[in-house]
């Protein structure tokens, strides 16, 4: 199995998803969150063989949201998924809007099991749940941690530094 054997990516317009372009000239898709697994599955069939990255963004208090197509209603959270096509030599990014009132997204674990760690990290850092994920637990922070550190309303320095040796004059 080599990179050139896989089918080349087909036109993205067939997916019926809003498309935009990022400042680097890359393609960005904006599926509704319910449709995310279906769109990712279609993209995989179209030759996007690997899910390279999945990360969250909290847009609370952003001065400028960048370019969003008119059809897309901006929400506080966003999950950005990057897929790569080895045969087409290109990446595509999916930006999914996630409302703060119900921060959840269907998991991509069924299509790409490699999103397991990445989804757990987004859950840990942003509190966005991935429905259907086999192990939706914290991955980087301690299990009993409260709050989600990469949210914009979680300030740097709110947790006092503990010096374990203080007061212990052995």
């Amino acid at each position: 199995m080599t990179a050139v054997d896989a089918p080349a990516p087909q036109g993205l317009s067939r997916l019926g998803v809003a498309v935009s372009e990022d400042p680097g000239g890359g393609t960005v898709l904006h599926p509704e969150r319910e449709r995310l697994p279906e769109v990712v599955e279609a993209l995989r069939e179209a030759g996007y063989t690997q899910c390279i990255d999945l990360c969250g963004v909290d847009y609370l208090g952003a001065d400028d949201r960048g370019r969003l197509p008119d059809a897309v209603a901006p929400q506080r959270f966003e999950v950005a998924v990057t897929l790569i096509s080895h045969s087409g030599r290109e990446r595509v990014r999916l930006r999914v809007q996630v409302p703060a009132a119900d921060p959840s997204v269907p998991t991509l674990f069924d299509t790409f099991p490699g999103t397991e760690n990445l989804e757990r990290e987004v859950f840990d850092m942003f509190g966005i749940r991935f429905d259907g994920h086999p192990d939706m637990t914290r991955i980087l922070m301690p299990e009993d941690w409260e709050g989600h550190p990469l949210r914009k309303d979680y300030a740097v320095g709110v947790v006092p530094v503990r010096f374990k040796a203080a007061g212990d004059q052995r």
């Binding site: 990022d22 400042p23 680097g24 890359g26 390279i52 990255d53 963004v57 001065d63 400028d64 949201r65 960048g66 370019r67 950005a80 990057t82 990446r91 990014r93 930006r95």
Partner: peptide, 9 residues
């Protein structure tokens, strides 16, 4: 830096 989002690898 102008607003927007990119992925560089």
């Amino acid at each position: 830096v102008p607003a927007g989002e990119v992925y560089a690898a």
